[in-house]
Structure formats: structure tokens, C-alpha cells
Nucleic acid binder design. Structure first.
Lengths: 243, 243
DNA sequence: CGGAATGTTGATATGCCTCAACTAAAGTGG
DNA sequence: CCACTTTAGTTGAGGCATATCAACATTCCG
């Protein structure tokens, strides 16, 4: 079991250098726990939160709700991620965040984080960098959904999920949790569910991945990255990792 | 003619409240001019800039370069925008920035901006907010390109360009500059050029917009926003604007 | 004026969406 | 624990929308 502190500093260290003072300042933040049921919303479009959430376990997703009720998923977040850090400086949520499978969160008051910035700018810059990496992930999603084939799109999504899990120490052998339904994959990649099912089977048949019961297993990482045109540089990590 | 100072503070005030001291601090930044020819790159993928760019006039676009040489445009930026502000905290460019038509930029050293954060956190927060709004625009682009019809997609793009120009005081009557080619619209929205041409004609025939010679004229704003499912809340401006 | 870049149009093909029927799995209550 | 219901996933058939290709027209620039 890790404390919110450990989870947060470990995550920030993936991309930022933190001094002892920075870490000390981060550890003064207060945390309130919140458990989410599968599919439960943490925040909705239009809300004005006064806390920021840190994922402690499980997975959450951000999504846009369209006028006709359809969803567009924007990104997925695992332990250590701050899926609504932008709310520190953007009053209203322009998207929602919901649990994918069950999830445990801790909530940190905005005021405390802002006070931390003034005391320790470098700790604030690490959070800023976190939001900038989110933006880089969004950019990659634009490209993925707009200029790749369904097969490449799906391969890329699996690469990203697996790679980020790997960095966060969340893989077990060659597999990691990814508790989304095929419907949700379709709502992420902009493809119909029937196409998701068929594309998934093709990837399975090619022995690139296995995906069932909310777990993703990678059969051939190198070929998967080629198929998905995946290059992890957009994740802006301090050190690249071999898989 | 406006100074870089005026352009930047005016832009930041669209979404942030700045005190006199904040503005004074912003005005201490130094600016180096750079003119870009049409299509010229300001920065390329992989570069490690030590300055951030401010658009003074004209337009620039951010894009991903794919392995096969195709481009995916990610966003467009007009006067007042900081199209590579993320480079303040992300070392390597994960995308490129090029001029769309000619453009005039000023370059501001990173070190000066970072120093400003420490002296005046609130001024830094305004820049941070600027990068967060960029991210919101990217999120909207994911949704636009992934779950809307070609017609809605294009309508939405025109709405965003026009609305942002309106906020920035860059429209003249019912029209604004948008010096992209149809090929580039295709590379933005993920559609083939033939489809761009035909969709454009359909929007013209419906008297929603006029688009030629690098200018966009809006014929019926209300219907255009309906067709594009456009809701400007994701731009996070302090005050909404009627058009 | 000539050449290059940009945009238009038509014909064709195909990939993906839609719809529908069916199967499998998971959750619920008697 | 089993029957029942619900949700999730699979499969096939069919049609349509958009990509692709190619020829042509237009505009832009030097």
C-alpha cells in the first residue's frame, strides 16, 4: 500500500526533477478519499470543482458528452495521474470524468495546491508539466483518430496504455489492466462497435495482443508499435524504457 | 500598430484577470522579431527551443508529421496566441509549427518567462491557463474529428476560427482571415481533399459560409453553430460574446 | 506569359457503418 | 444454486459515404 504522497511524487518524478524541499512541500497537501463504482462519474461537464483528483487505483476516463447522448472518450488515467488537474485554473469542466471499472481516488483542495505553487514554484512546475503532457496525449489522439486506419488506431491505443502502465510499475509480466468495454474502445477511437470487435480479432489472430476480461496482454511489442506507428517521445518521460 | 506587450496582455485578459503589477512584470519581457514566409517552419518536431513564440500577425499552425510524410494539423493560432508555450516545460517538440500564409512572430526567452513566474505567480498562472485552453481545444478536436460528420466537422472548425478571431478583435464585418488551403483543411479534419471541396460547396450553397482567397465569411452564424454542434464554453473565456 | 499549385468534377471501389439476429457472459433474485 | 434478465460481444448481409484515382479548370506567381 502506498500513500497519496508516494503515489504523486513517484508519478511526478517520471517527468520532473524534484528536490527534497519540493517533495516535503508536496507531502503537506491534504487528501480526502473517494471510492468510485464502475461507471460512476467523478465530475460532470459544467461542474466547478474546488478539488483536484489523484488516481490511487483502478482507472478513470475523461469524456465529452454529445448532444445526442453519445460519448467521446478523450483519455484514460491510472494510478498517479491527475485526471482533472486543468480544473486548477479552468473554472468549469468542459468534459466529464468517470470510473472505468472501480477506482479509488483522493481529492486535494485547489487552494492548497495553489498555495504550494507560491511556496515552491518547482513543485508547481511539475504539476504544470503534468498538464502539458496531458495536452501532448490529446494531440496524439487527434492524429491517431484522424489519420490512421482502424487497425493502427487500436494498436496505438494499446501501445499507449501498456507503455504508461509499464512506466508506472503497473504491469505484471506482459499484461496490464485495461477494464474498458469494446463499446468504450469504439467511443475512444471513433469506430463502430462491430468494427472494434473485428479489428480486435484481427490483432488477436496476428498474435499482437490478447484482450479480455479487462486485461490487455501484449504478444509482440515490437510489431505492435510498428502497426500503431507508436513513438513514446510524446509522453515526455525523463528516461525511455525498454519493453 | 501594437507592441508585443499590448498583444500579449490583451490576449491573456481574455481569460485571466491581471493586476497592474502583473502587467508591469509582463512588460519587462524582451522580444525578438521573426518574420515567417508562407509555409515556413518556425520549429520542427524534435527541436529543443529556448524561446517561446507569440503571434503578432498572420497565422501559424501546429502539426504532426507522419512517417509517410503526411501532415496532421492540430490547431491554428492567430495574433496573441502562444503556439509553443508548452516548450517552457517540455524539452523536445513533439510537433512542428509552421506559418499559414505569412506571419510575424516575436520570440521570448524561456528564462525570462520562468523568472517572471517566480516574481509574479499570477502572471505565470495566466500563461498556464493559456496552455490549458490549448489542451481544451485539442480535446474538442478529438471529438470533432472522431464523432462528427464531415459537414459538422467543417462547420465546427469554421465556428472556432471565427469565434476566436472575434474575441481577438480580428474580424471585419462578418469575415476573418483564414489563409489555409483546402488540402490543409483536409489535413486538419482527417478527410480527403475531394470531400473537402464538395463539403465546402455544400456549406456555401446553404449560405452558411463563404470561403475563398484565404478569407472566411459567415453567412448565418446561428445555423452554422447548430450544424457544427459548436458551444464556445470549451474556450474558457471570461465573457461570452454575441456574434 | 508559362508553369506550378490549388481547386473542381466525375467515375469507381471499398471500407466502414447500420441493422439485425444470435451467442456468451455476467449479474440478480427466488 | 439455478432460472432469469441484462449486458457485452460476435457474425452476417447490405448499403452508403468517403477514399481513391484521374482528368480538367482555375488561380497564383514569377
Amino acid at each position: 500500500m502506498s500513500t497519496p504522497n508516494e503515489v504523486l511524487t513517484r508519478k511526478l518524478k517520471e517527468h520532473s526533477s524534484l528536490s527534497g524541499d519540493d517533495i516535503a512541500e508536496l507531502s503537506r497537501l491534504s487528501y480526502q478519499r473517494r471510492r468510485l463504482d464502475p461507471n460512476e462519474d467523478l465530475i460532470r461537464q459544467g461542474d466547478k470543482p474546488d478539488v483536484a483528483a489523484l488516481v490511487m487505483s483502478g482507472m478513470v476516463g475523461r469524456y465529452h458528452l454529445l448532444k445526442d447522448g453519445r460519448r467521446q472518450y478523450l483519455s484514460f488515467h491510472k494510478r498517479g495521474d491527475l485526471p482533472d488537474a486543468q480544473s486548477l485554473f479552468l473554472d468549469r469542466m468542459d468534459h466529464a470524468v468517470c470510473a472505468i471499472g472501480g477506482a479509488e481516488m483522493v481529492l486535494i483542495p485547489h487552494v492548497e495546491i495553489r498555495r504550494m505553487f507560491e511556496r515552491r514554484p518547482a513543485a508547481g512546475f511539475a504539476i504544470w508539466r503534468e498538464t502539458l503532457i496531458d495536452a501532448a496525449i490529446f494531440r496524439e489522439a487527434i492524429t491517431n483518430n484522424s489519420s490512421r486506419t482502424p487497425r493502427a488506431r487500436m494498436a496505438h491505443l494499446f501501445c499507449e496504455i501498456f507503455y504508461r502502465a509499464r512506466i508506472g510499475g503497473l504491469i505484471d509480466g506482459n499484461s496490464c489492466d485495461f477494464p474498458v468495454s469494446q463499446t468504450q474502445i469504439g467511443e475512444t477511437l471513433g469506430m463502430a462497435i462491430a468494427t472494434v470487435s473485428r479489428t480486435l480479432q484481427a490483432l488477436r489472430r496476428a498474435r499482437l495482443i490478447e484482450f479480455r476480461g479487462g486485461r490487455l496482454a501484449v504478444g509482440d511489442w515490437n510489431r505492435l508499435t510498428v502497426q500503431g506507428d507508436f513513438n513514446p517521445e510524446y509522453l515526455h518521460l525523463k528516461r525511455a524504457v525498454r519493453i
